[in-house]
Amino acid sequence: MNKSFLKYILLGFGFAFLYFPIFTLIIYSFNESKRVMVWKGFSLKWYVELFKNEQILEAFYISIKIASISATFATLLGVMAGYSLARISKIPFRSFFIFISTAPLVMPEIILGLSLLLFFISANNLFGLPSSKGQLTVLISHITFSVAFVAVIIQARLSSFNKSIEEAAQDLGAVPNSVIWKVTLPVILPSIISGWLLAFTLSLDDLVIASFTTGPGANTLPIVVFSKVRMGLSPEVNALSAVIMLVIVTIAIGYYIKTRNKLDVN
């Protein structure tokens, strides 16, 4: 058997496996029938239903709000943590700091969620803060586990750059604060952007931690979707998947065209 033939077969199967379920969902989102798997003809009915469903729209709005605020704070903290890990050697209890800033990467969500919930309850008992569970507690939780992801991205980027570019800036007369603003930050900017995007998706995607830490008025999109699909299928969720897929594919194509042009220059 030909080697490149084997390669295409393998890649073909791999990508088919990745995309088959998603495409099925998209196709069935145009199904007229209320019973998801019985095809009754093409219709945009479920998209209309989706955009009329106040519960989903409300949850979507809350999710986007929490995700963007959480991503912003997580990026801020993650940049600081990543910079400290990569560039500052004198940190008290350094290995403890390394532990708490990388362990959330692999800590099972259910344990993180449980610990944060118990923390909020204890804090409420002791200090009366937070006064109730809700958007704020979900936000704090999302920031906490996203920080580790951003920190790792920033640290990797900083480690791949020789420290000498920062020294060069100093040598050329830049004071330490100016070095950070004019050299370090611009150099890691692409990683800051991808860190923000990752933190945003992590927050938008999270069900388990949000379920633990949520309260009245803070039902995020995953919580609503989960309650809809836990027991059975929902044609509206199919339509929702198609919409999300469309947004992501658009972004991905845009990104691809941008990077492809860049490759052509090289």
Partner: peptide, 21 residues
Amino acid sequence: ILLIIPFWTSFLLRVYAWKVL
């Protein structure tokens, strides 16, 4: 990018897709 697209799609919806299938 083809590998990453499903990664950025909602985790919950990807699991749900198999429930449908």
